[in-house]
Amino acid sequence: MSRLQVVSGKGGTGKTTVAAALALALATEGKRTLLVEVEGRQGIAQLFETEALPYEERKIAVAPGGGEVYALAIDAERALLDYLQMFYKLGGAGRALKKLGAIDFATTIAPGVRDVLLTGKACEAVRRRERDGRPVYDHVVMDAPPTGRITRFLNVNDEVAGLARIGPIHHQAQAVMGVLKSPDTAVHLVTLLEEMPVQETADGVAELRAAGLPVGRVVVNMVRPQVLDEAAVRAASGDHREAIARTLAGAGVAGAAGLVEPLLDQAAEHARRVELERDQRAVLDGIGLPAYELPYLGDGADIAGLYRLAKELRKQGVGAA
C-alpha cells in the first residue's frame, strides 16, 4: 500500500469518515498512521469526538490489534511561519510580517502557496524517519479537498511553477511533486451509488490521470443492502395484495390491510433505487479502477461505525502485507 493515501470525493459522500476508517484500517499491529486534515474544518476531531485538534500531531485512537492513529490539522499560516523559522530564523520578524498582512497574503491570496504548504507538510510526514531509519509513520492518510478541487490542489507544481520559478517555494513544490506523482501516493475517490457523485468521480479520475497523479481506488460508500429485487417487487404488486395482507396478519401484524399499499410503495421505491444503483455500478466499472465497498451505517458515522468501516476495509485487503 502506498505510504501517502489521499482521500477525496464529492461533498456529502463521507470522505472524512472514509479517511479516518482507512487510517484505522492501516494501523495494524505495531504500525502507526497519521491522519491529516487540510481544510480547517475540524472534521476529524468531530468524528473522534475529541477537542479541536491543535497544530500538532497527537494520538487520537488505538486501532483494533494495537496500531496507533495520530491526527494533525494542518494550518497553512502556522506551517508558513514554521517554515520561515526553520529556514530563515525569522523569530519576531515573522510576527511583523503577519501584522503587515504578508502572511495572510502568502497563505490565502498568493496563488498556490497555500496548497504547497499543506501538501508539503503531509509529504514531510511521509518522509520523516526515526533515528534508526524507520519511517515515523507507516502511512499518512489525508482528508483532502473535494473532487472538484483535488487535481488543482495536488498539482501544485504546475500552479506554482508559472509564478515562482526560483526560490524555496519553487523547490518545495518540486519536492512535493516528486512524492505526489510517485507510487508512494494513491489518490482515492469516495462516491455514492448516485448519479451526480458517480459522474463527478469519473470526471475526477480523468483529470487526475491527465495530470499524471496516481489514482488509487474508488471507494463506494454507504452501500445499502438489497432487500428485495425487482422481480420480487413485481410479484408483490397486482393480484397479491390480499394474500400479502393475509400473510402479514398471519405473521402478527395488526391492521395489515392498511399497511399493504405503503409497504408496496416502499418496495417499488427500493426497486427503482436498486436499478439506478446498478446503472451507476456499470458507470464505475467503466472507469476501470478497483473499488472498496463500505456499508451504509444506519445509526450514522459515530466512533462505533468508524471501527466497523475499518474492519470492512481490512476484510477487503487494507493493511494486508
Binding site: 428485495l228 420480487a232 400479502i244 408496496l264 416502499q266
Partner: peptide, 8 residues
C-alpha cells in the same frame, strides 16, 4: 416476499 417487505 412479505418478510422482505417487512425488513425493508
Amino acid at each position: 416476499l412479505t418478510a422482505g417487505l417487512l425488513r425493508l
